[in-house]
Design a protein around this nucleic acid. Structure first.
Lengths: 340, 340
DNA sequence: CTGAAAGCGCTAACAT
DNA sequence: ATGTTAGCGCTTTCAG
């Protein structure tokens, strides 16, 4: 079988504790012994068993990551998480809950069994049972994509409301007034409802009326975006600009408009949200809101790290965003006095 | 602290071994005892410590996944792996090696330390040291995206050669003869070199000459695809069709051609490879080769499982592929006698 | 069928 | 500074 610390001790003619000491640099060891041990370790390629270490130290250097699905957005998130985790000696262990809240609970349990040092949770809907379990488990948790301030659980999320109000104001400055929106599921309080409210309320504040026929719902997919746009364009009167709750929706909507003979942005302007890679690959390039999911991941991991190390953590962590103006919005009139 | 099996034993008034037996169902236990134990477990919400179990059983139910980068293609791969892993009680632990071969070696070591039950490795370049380490470690490994038949290490990969020959034949049937290609880095023996050779050799077999000016190299990115296409289109004579080694390349090439005033497919036909989601979202929709990375993942995990369970495994695992005909190729002449 | 006890590979208190 | 030893929480012989 594999070598153990005991074998090394025997081969080096010292005690196991001495071996442990040189491995962990935990206590001063005589140079003489140290060299002997290091020599044996080098020659045998010995590596201490991480599981045994974990059993005693209560730390596995594992971070549990719970995701409702694994797509290109998760990929960016994982990239961010993995980046700072790795830099700090942690590995990440993944659980895909396939949009099933019960599996999220399972994963929370399982990760506790496996004694992970911390958990990053992207839940589709934080229930009381989630909160309960998290608080019982006593394992540091950071939530992403949802705001759990009420429960004193640290989170990192985008502001879903303000960017949309900025989009509305930008469209107005470009001369648009008949503005529609294709939003996400309103049950989804973050990317769904908040973005929708941002639109409705900003339109109200600016005294622009929202034609209900200009508003459609989707599940964030391109296909749904296409369908929603189709419905909007069937009316006699159509909007001059449509705000979409995601880039994928926007691209579906764009394809639909084009299939129906409209040109983007000449006939209809379209704005997306997220700034996925696609947004620059599609023609015209999509005007959208940039939110960096990789940053979301790294920020989440950083706060998790602080929590693990018992440092003070910010409960609320808002992500930066930026309106990215590209080619999918027509400038009807520019009251900024500058070329946009 | 947390409850242990010892606490449960005390509370139920039985021995720890009995508790262990009812938990694992490893040996017959008197119903009387069984019920008592189960009751206590239920009431206390006791869950056995997976680390301690791992130490003794030598099995952690963890699968190490080593990836050179995490993007939307990895996301699909992970999806496939995670799906079958999860179904079999395994979790996956991720290592992103950031295109650095040394980090691949590190990850291999680290995963051994952590006593994973198996490893799925996507290497950018399998060196002798990789092979050595894998064979020394004695942990089941399956390689994806590379063919390691020589070393008797099971792999799953696409056939990169044949699909390209099929594309060439398809383009010929559509009436194309002046065909170009934008390939990937030739150092990459799989998706780079093989696809390139498939093109060159099939053209030769069909007695079609390849104009060197119609051939460009790229690193698989859209940007590079754009640049390579730009070079090709600067010549007086241009190809009627361009085969691209990936969809991302194809989309870059398409954008370039369109920016230069060419219409796709009327002026130039373009074919991609991979069939990423983008391929259907872009207009015209991309004709391409479908290879399902999720299937690649699940297949890899399935063979890994067999290896873990000491079942016989196939060393060579080719992935299915399919030519997906969409709208980016113009039918100049159709010698099939049917409408394509 | 049940319980006592050994031990998985390691760390850390305790003694020397 | 070094070695001995007692566990970490669990599974699994081995007796009974």
């Amino acid at each position: 079988m594999n070598l153990t610390i005991k074998d090394i001790a025997r081969m080096a003619g010292v005690s196991v504790s001495s071996v442990s000491r040189v491995i962990n640099n935990s206590k001063p060891v005589n140079d003489h012994i140290k060299e002997k041990v290091e020599k044996v370790i080098r020659e045998t390629n010995f590596r201490p068993n991480a599981v045994a270490r974990g059993l005693i130290s209560k730390s596995t250097n594992l971070i549990g990551v719970i995701l409702p699905q694994i797509n290109y957005i998760s990929a960016e998130l994982i990239n961010g998480i993995e980046g700072v985790a790795n830099k700090n000696g942690y590995n990440i262990i993944l659980s895909n809950t396939r949009l099933n809240p019960d599996l999220e609970l399972n994963a929370l349990q399982l990760f506790k069994d496996k004694q992970v040092d911390g958990i990053i949770l992207s839940s589709i809907d934080m229930s009381e049972r989630h909160i309960q379990l998290i608080q019982d488990n006593k394992i540091p948790v950071v939530v992403v994509g949802q705001k759990t301030t009420d429960y004193a659980i640290p989170w990192v999320d985008v502001d879903n409301y303000r960017p949309i109000t900025e989009i509305v104001r930008y469209l107005m400055r470009c001369g648009h007034e008949k503005i529609g929106m294709i939003h996400g599921p309103l049950i989804d309080k973050s990317a769904g409802d908040s973005r929708y409210r941002g639109f409705i309320e900003e339109m109200e504040r600016k005294n622009l009326s929202v034609n209900p026929k200009f508003v459609g719902e989707s599940n964030f997919s391109s296909k749904d975006g296409y369908l929603a746009m189709e419905k909007i364009l069937k009316c006699e009167d159509i909007p001059t600009a449509v705000v979409c709750a995601s880039d994928t929706i926007a691209i579906g909507a764009k394809n639909c408009a084009e299939d129906l003979g409209y040109r983007i942005p000449e006939d209809i302007s379209i704005v997306g949200f997220d700034d996925i890679e696609l947004a620059t690959l599609v023609r015209p390039k999509l005007t959208t809101v940039q939110v960096c999911f990789e940053t979301m991941g790294s920020k989440a991991m950083e706060t998790l790290l602080q929590s693990i190390e018992f440092k003070p953590v910010n409960i609320e962590n808002y992500l930066d965003y930026r309106l990215i103006i590209r080619d999918s919005v027509k400038v009807v009139a520019d009251d900024l006095g500058t070329k946009i």
